[in-house]
Nucleic acid binder design. Sequence first.
DNA 1: CCGTATCCATTCCGATACTG
DNA 2: CAGTATCGGAATGGATACGG
Lengths: 151, 151
Amino acid sequence: MAKRTSLKDNACPIARSMESIGDCWSMLIIRDAMMGLRRFSEFQKHLGLAKNILTTRLRALVADGILTTEPASDGSAYQDYVLTPKGRAVFPIMVALRQWGEDFAFAPGEATNIMVDRKAGKRVRPLELHAADGRLLGVGDTAIKPVASAG
Amino acid sequence: MAKRTSLKDNACPIARSMESIGDCWSMLIIRDAMMGLRRFSEFQKHLGLAKNILTTRLRALVADGILTTEPASDGSAYQDYVLTPKGRAVFPIMVALRQWGEDFAFAPGEATNIMVDRKAGKRVRPLELHAADGRLLGVGDTAIKPVASAG
DNA sequence: CCGTATCCATTCCGATACTG
DNA sequence: CAGTATCGGAATGGATACGG
């Protein structure tokens, strides 16, 4: 009774995205992969989660085409987990999440992993939404096709 | 045994963000709120979830400062749920999620809710990451403070 | 080092029934 | 309309022990 509703095939792309990456561990694994981590133990140590959970998440991410496995770069018999283009494309989401978290969800300490612009040598706070004509967009500048029942 | 680890106070802003909005229903409620929905029944009908779950999520979002309640605009005895500034600030995340979903998570049908640029009258595909100097950023242009064990 | 296999507790989700 | 109360069941998270 009452299977949990899957949003994988939902018509809304936001719902589909959330179904793929709307999970804390998955997102943090992607974050760590963007930081250059690629080995099972690296993820496990850095995230501090149980190994079976990490296994599950890695498998799901591979099945989703976000990560892929390749022969270990150090010549060992194991594999590296590396981002696919689809996985690297999560980058804007990551930056948006980071900035929102910094602006609106405060933590006791300071962030341990600061995303920096390597060349400029400073923090990246660059997220902007531009329309095709170059104009900066905000919430007030956008609309969504209204729902039938809505006002 | 084994309480689920909370990331509310995690040092990483991405983890904190995911803890607040890294939930399908919460994100979709915010989406609908951005679409102009504000009444309990509107959310319930449009999302198709059980009322008790909607209640829980709305409460959490209010407690998180993402939504706030105000007297119903139609004069009824009930309340409207409207986005706070913190809630409206989720907009860039929403756009990033939408674009990623459109680009990489295909669905059988077409999207029902297309985010459009009202003035230009066309689809918004504007997400870009700019450094402070105006240069466009990608994954390759950024780095994160390396972890001790990495490398 | 890289997982797999159990096991248990908790949480969460959805349905339904009920109230003002 | 806008919730609350309750319940069964499913899924998940985490600990731990084990195997190649």
